[in-house]
Nucleic acid binder design. Structure first.
Lengths: 158, 158
DNA sequence: CGAAAATAGTTTACGTGGAAACTATTTCCG
DNA sequence: CGGAAATAGTTTCCACGTAAACTATTTTCG
């Protein structure tokens, strides 16, 4: 490094301006932070957020068609196919083609799948506790409620 | 609500359970929705959120090094190189290697780049306004404030 | 019935973003 | 000075996710 004056003029300060009021921009930034926390907590294990979510939902809804779950999670069919192939190859998910509609595939967890979910369940669901570190608990709850509303998950269950 | 057994067999209802309280999951869902809004509004033009953000920040901070801007936006060096190559090839950004450090690259907008930013500025910055979203304006503002705090962009003020 | 349309899932081909290795330049010290 | 370390950016290769085309079934309806 040269002198402090040059340093100050060149680096350090990057003005972001009004873009910090853009929801899309903020969501991207927030997701990167959440991702950091996630891998900081669970990175030691070989676990991807998306994969665990799919396992979780299959566990809660055994026997549903692959496409039904994919739509609910906004996973595109092409990607869902690969996900299920992976989860199936790992021995966590069974694919069953029912008699009444041989186009479709119904999903369920294997015993290993259930064990896997049970094992990482707390770590995954509690990841959000660590994620909230910049926010007071009340604010974190509020943020979650607003996101749930914004993303259209409001009416469904909870 | 039907009972759990019926629910499970129904193809319409997908239970998500406690995962709807996970910040990471909600951020992913929210981002997908924001993405939809973005392309619904600006999809007609050939504009990517990330590219516009980079142009915007270069415009606000002409002469900064490529890596400085990348770090601030959490863009990895490898990706930043490709982004700048594209923006440069499009004639929006100039790359200047300064005499005092010939390893580095300093960025600025061309006239066309400034015109481009000026042209899409309103559409991009206002894309977040929750006209078509599920949130009231107050809630949208609150959501933005919480996200800004969570993602660590809280410069001054609160 | 049977051809056309609709549906479920898969395959292919591609674009975005990242990790690791590489090149070039500058700085640090022995 | 001059070799080791640090820094800036690039290149190569790979994972994730998507769109579009494809296969296989089921449904629609003339």
């Amino acid at each position: 490094m040269t002198d402090a004056l040059t340093e100050t003029l060149d680096d350090e300060i990057v003005e972001l301006g009004e873009i910090t009021g853009s929801l899309g921009f903020l969501l991207r930034m927030a997701q990167l932070r959440a991702f950091d926390y996630f891998f900081q907590t669970l990175g030691e294990h070989d676990l991807r957020p998306g994969e665990f979510t799919v396992l979780w939902v299959i566990g809660l809804n055994p026997g549903l068609r692959q496409g039904t779950i994919a739509r609910r999670l906004h996973i595109k069919p092409a990607h869902m196919t690969k996900l299920i192939q992976r989860l199936s190859a790992a021995g966590w998910v069974t694919r069953t083609v029912p008699q009444d509609d041989r186009r479709s595939v119904r999903l369920a967890l294997t015993g290993e799948g259930e064990a896997f979910v049970a094992r990482y369940r707390d770590g995954f669901l509690h990841a959000h506790l660590a994620e909230r570190s910049n926010l007071a608990p009340d604010d974190a709850e509020h943020l979650i409620a607003l996101l749930r509303r914004y993303s259209g998950l409001e009416g469904a269950g909870t």
